[in-house]
Structure formats: C-alpha cells, structure tokens
Design a protein around this nucleic acid. Sequence first.
RNA 1: GGGCCGUUAGCUCAGUCUGGUAGAGCAGCAGACUUUUAAUCUGCGGGUCGGAGGUUCGAAUCCUCCACGGCUCACCA
Length: 539
Amino acid sequence: MSEQLESWPYREARHVDEHLKRAESGDAKSDDDPVLFQTGFGPSGLPHIGTFSEVARTNWVRRAFSTVSDRPTKLIAFSDDMDGLRKVPENIPNGDMIAEHLGKPLCDIPDPFGEEDSFSGYMNAQLRSFLDSFGFDYNFVSSKDMYRGGEFNDGLLRILECYDEVRQVIIKTLRNPNRDEWSPFFPVCENCGKVNNTRVTDVHPKDGAVSYVCDQSFRGAEACGHSGTVPVTDGHVKVGWKVDWALRWYVLGVDYEMYGKDLIESAELSTEIVRALGGEPPAGMFYEMFLDENGAKISKSKGTGLSIDDWLQYGPLESLAWFIFKKPKKAKKLFFEVIPRSTDQYLEALHDYGVATESEQELDNPVYFIKDEEIDAGEEVTYESNISYSMILNLVSVLNTDDRDMVWDYLRRYDDRVDADKDVIDDLVDRALRYYREFVFPTKEYKLPDEEVMPGVEQLREFLDQYDGDDPEEIQTATYRAGKDNDIKLGKWFRSMYRMLLGQDRGPRLGTFIHLYGVEETLNLINERLAEKSAGNAD
RNA sequence: GGGCCGUUAGCUCAGUCUGGUAGAGCAGCAGACUUUUAAUCUGCGGGUCGGAGGUUCGAAUCCUCCACGGCUCACCA
C-alpha cells in the first residue's frame, strides 16, 4: 500500500488495511467479503450538515481504500430506528400527539407528518432522499429490521453469554447508585410498548431470556408497571447505546466507522465490549464539530451557523465538499465568509488537478475525492481561467447589476479563457448575483449630485444625447471632460457619478460601463435620478 | 473532574505529522493600466509563532510544565 499518498483518507485507508490483517488473523473475515464502511444515524431528527459530512468523509476513505486495494467495499447507512424517543423535537408538527408516545421505539410511533408508516419511517425516507440527492452510493440498513428480522439474534445471545463482562465495561463508568441495577438489555414492554421505561430484573441465559419490570418513568413518559419475561431475540429487547454500537460491529463485521468527538468515550467502551464478545473493532477516527462565527457549537434551534441549503445558495456543492474535506479533525467555523474562500481554494485545486503531471499529484488532490463521479466517468476535470469567486462577487457588486451578460462581458475582457470554464463560471455568476440581490442591493444608498457637480452632469447628458458612436474610449474621454471642463475635482466628480448611478462610492471605468450598459439606458437613468431630484426640491 | 482541540501579521487562517532563513487572503500604504475612479496587476510595511524550560549544530514544528480560550463527556441513545 502506497506510503506516498499523504491526505487523510489514505491514512485512514492504511488503518483499514491494518485492521483487516488483525481481523483475518482471528479468521473473523475472509478475503472475499466486502470491506464494510458504516455510518450511523439517529432518526429522531432531520438530516443536516453533520449527516452529510459523515457520509461524505466515510465515502472518501472508502474511495482512498479502493484506490490502493482491489478488495470490494460496501457502505452501510445504519438507522437507529429502534431507539426510544426521549423528547419531542421542536421542529415537527403534531407535537402533542407525538408526546403521547414518548419512550416508545421510533419505529412504533406514528409519523407526525402523516406520510409514512412511522416516525422513523418518515425520517428514514428523508435521510435516503437526502443522501440520494447527493448521489451517495450506500446500503440502507435499519435497526428495526435487524432486531425484528432476527439478524441480531446471534449477537444478542452472545451478549447474554458474556453478560458480566459486558456489564463490567459500562459499570466502571457509572456512579455507585446505578451500578447494581444496570443491564445492557432494554426490553420493549409487552403492555405499553415503551423501551425507555423498562428495567431488567433477572437474566435467564439458558433460556435466552430476561425478566423485566416497566417502572422507570421520566419526564413526559409514565411507566405502566407491567412486568414479564421475554426472549432477548427477535426484537423483544434492544441493547443500550454503547452495547448497540458494539453489537452492530460484531454482527455486521464493520471494518471502518468514524464518529464525532462527542462519541470518543462511547467508541472506546464499544471497542472493549466488542472485544469481550470476541470481535475485532473497526478502524476509525473521530472528527471535530462545526462551530459558528463566534466559536460556539452550531445550533439549529438558535439558527447559528449555516445549513446546507444556506451554503448551496451562495456556493457550489464542491465548495462545501472542500470545506468538509479539509482538516476533519479541526473544529471549523461555519459562517458565510468561508464560502468564497472555500470556493476559491477549490477552484485552485481544480486548476492544479487539470495540470497535474504525476498520478500521485492527482490522487492526493482533494478534487480526486470531490469530483469522484466525473473522474471515474472519464470526464475532463479542470479549470483553466484564473477567475476567482471572490473576484466575481466583487465585480457584480461593483457593476451594480443583475445582468449576467454584462458580468460575462467584463469577465471576457479580463481573461479570454473564461469560455473554456463556462459552466463552472456561469454557476458562480448565478450565485454571486443572488448574493448581490439579497445582501448588497438592499444596502445601496443613491445620492443625487450637489449643485457644484450639476454642470458636469448636464454636459455629460448633452454628450450622451447626441452621441451615436460605439467606442468606449470616446465615452470615457467625454465623461472625463465633463468633470474637467467644469472645474470639478475629479475624485469628487466620479464619486458623485457612482453615487447617483450605482449607489456606491466606487465603480467600474465609466466609459466601459456606459458602453456596455447602453448610452440610451444610461441617459434614461440619469434623467430618472434628476427627476427625483427636482421632485425632491418641490417637496 | 475526564477526554480532545486551539493560541502564528490589524482580521480570518496555512505552515506542526517528516526540525533547516516565518507564509496567504483580506485590511492598510504606494505604484502600473495614454488622462479620473474601480476591477485587475505589481510592490511595500507589518509577527518575541500564548509563556517557561528541555532535546538539537539548528525548534512555530519534537518533549515537559504552565496560562488562556473553546468543544465534549459524566449512566441519553
């Protein structure tokens, strides 16, 4: 396996390789099984940027692995839809109805949106269409299917066999009052259907069963008091969080899984548990959380940070992918200003990718991961011009326009290779115009020229009125003369013109601008503004 | 309290894995584009690399301790 490739997905891929050697020495896996990458989701809420990041990053490790190995791979998106609901999410309808089902597995709660067969059914559908919309290749697996379909049975019985060892792993992390009672098993109450309210009172390893009582009420969810004995298999019982994770690793034979840094300790405990069961934990890494502009954790309810939709309004998907690719172990601030920067860095990398001469330069370029589909399809992936997104944003603002053709005219003057990158740049112009309309335009402050400047305005107006040529330089000269002839300080003269026409102190070279905007149109614009001025005077 | 991350130019951050003359963008200043402004381009200024020790011929980089800031965990999956 190549040691030359330095970017983090290859390092992770090497960890997968080391993991496989360990797992195979314990004959837990054979050469022919696909190497399994897993990402997990709690379907108690809607997919978000963290969901996207985790799948994207895992997929990049998978790609790196496939680049340096011939073994087949598979990505599992695992949904924890057997988890109980602890509290009603704020951003869903019919909260009162959902509140009645607190404590039950998500797959046994009605869909608050009334579209799918259950709460988690709705969230799972959202997750899948979300992942599909980005073109991810994955196999969807649900906790409910695994438990109730009997797929987890062997693992569950194994946990029962290793009951004390598994308990010891968790118990050492618990405070004393809870130690004695704790059990990895949480039966689904046969009477009320809740899973968060039950407590194991006895285990019956020979029968593969546990006894329980439903007496653990919590805020909003009353326990019914029922007691009974159920088999641990076939979905009558689920296991608690860290054990659940270990169970998945053990039964599915997961080879790689990453997780947020809030789960570092969970991962360590799950590692101990899966070893206690006789399995080999997957290779993996933790990644950092996203922060908002002030360095606080992003919060959907407070509206801090950026959502994926926000980002995609003003930056292409590739720029978001770039942001997520870079330094997964660093807590990064997610706010508007990073969009142009990420986009520009991505464009530079795209340019480098296009001119790379050695294969390793290509393989180590984030573009190799971000544009995986296009590259694998044999499409040309490159960016020839040196137009940056920052420049387009600036240009659109300076031109004070939402006319894309005019922006293109200016871009062509700057770099005649722009048409080679037409699709990419056109998309950027689109987003820049949207940004301009929504953020820049509302802040425009038009000011009418004061009396000192008026003679110049009159002279320019007369010139434009009689002008029937088509030469930007002639117009430029006339504009210049209009100020000069009337003894207006030129700095003030041009500033006044920009203030009147564009609502800002600075602007493009006026001859060029008037030529592109249109002599007639400019004249009309001046007349409109002057009409406002005389109307203002009449008040 | 445990774990982890960060501290580098006015601002946002690269550079730390693998030690070898401190970097980029923005902001500031100056200049170029036949004359104005802007785009754009060129140049300039600007940092005790959080602090203190240590290793080394040589430390932003490796080791130890400390300070400050932040995230996260402590029986929720």
